[in-house]
């Protein structure tokens, strides 16, 4: 039996799963080793869409993309923020070592303009990363963006509400973000290239906010009424 198997293997008549060629998709490392491990060394896919689904802004989603943004800016590329929900705060970005001159914030009147800008940014060679906060996307529009990202070989991260997880999407990577314990960020991989979904990891994000080691009780809160206000 063993000999039979050996001959089959040596004749290469049997395809072995372990010999599967490592997918060499163009990608950018995320800068977080725990997440990189989960993404099978692929990282943020280049020339494709990435979706981050989150319940609300302010749970650490910008910390997640900071290493990528920093790398793109250092390479001399421009980073576009299209319709961010709040103002990206310049002193904080500067503190993270980002060159503000290369960050362009775009505000559009309506969804059509936003998609148009997104597509144009994606197709341009100067673009390193496009981050967008679209309101609602049809799958036809998603495919259009996917094609634009392929044409420009650029990185595109869409931040969408968690409810969009139920809809199918042509994005190459879909991450579901949740606030975790101790101000960490819980990431569930809904979809990725070259691997199974539903993997899970937690990023600690220690630099996110100034948190005292001996938290809650020691913070002087000032006069705070008994009831909720």
């Amino acid at each position: 039996m063993k000999e039979l198997l050996d001959t089959l293997i040596s004749d290469a008549r049997v395809w072995q799963g372990s010999q599967q060629a490592q997918t060499t998709l163009p990608a950018e490392p995320t800068g977080f080793s725990a997440l990189d491990l989960q993404l099978a060394g692929v990282g943020w896919p280049r020339g494709a869409l990435t979706e981050c689904l989150l319940p609300a802004p302010g749970i650490g989603e910008l910390q997640l993309v900071l290493p990528l943004m920093r790398r793109q800016l250092e390479a001399g590329k421009t980073v576009f923020w299209i319709n961010p929900p709040y103002t990206p705060y310049a002193p904080a970005l500067e503190r993270e070592g980002l060159n503000l001159a290369q960050i362009v914030v775009v505000h559009t009147q309506d969804q059509a303009d936003a998609l148009w800008s997104l597509e144009n940014c994606l197709r341009s060679p100067v673009t390193g990363l496009v981050m967008a906060w679209p309101t609602r996307l049809k799958s036809r529009e998603m495919r259009r963006l996917q094609l634009a990202a392929e044409a420009g070989d650029s990185l595109c991260i869409l931040f969408r509400p968690t409810g969009a997880a139920d809809n199918s999407s042509p994005a190459a990577l879909r991450l579901q973000l949740e606030p975790g314990q101790n101000h960490a960020l819980d990431i569930r991989i809904l979809k990725r290239r070259g691997g199974w979904a539903a993997e899970h990891c937690t990023l600690a994000l220690p630099d996110r906010a100034p948190v005292r080691p001996d938290t809650a009780t020691s913070v002087v809160r000032g006069p705070w009424p008994e009831r909720n206000r």
């Binding site: 705060y89 500067e94 503190r95």
Partner: peptide
Amino acid sequence: SGTTCPSARSRPLWLFN
């Protein structure tokens, strides 16, 4: 010109209008 002196204090990345 890149004359920046990052503030020492930690600040949030999102600021409300």
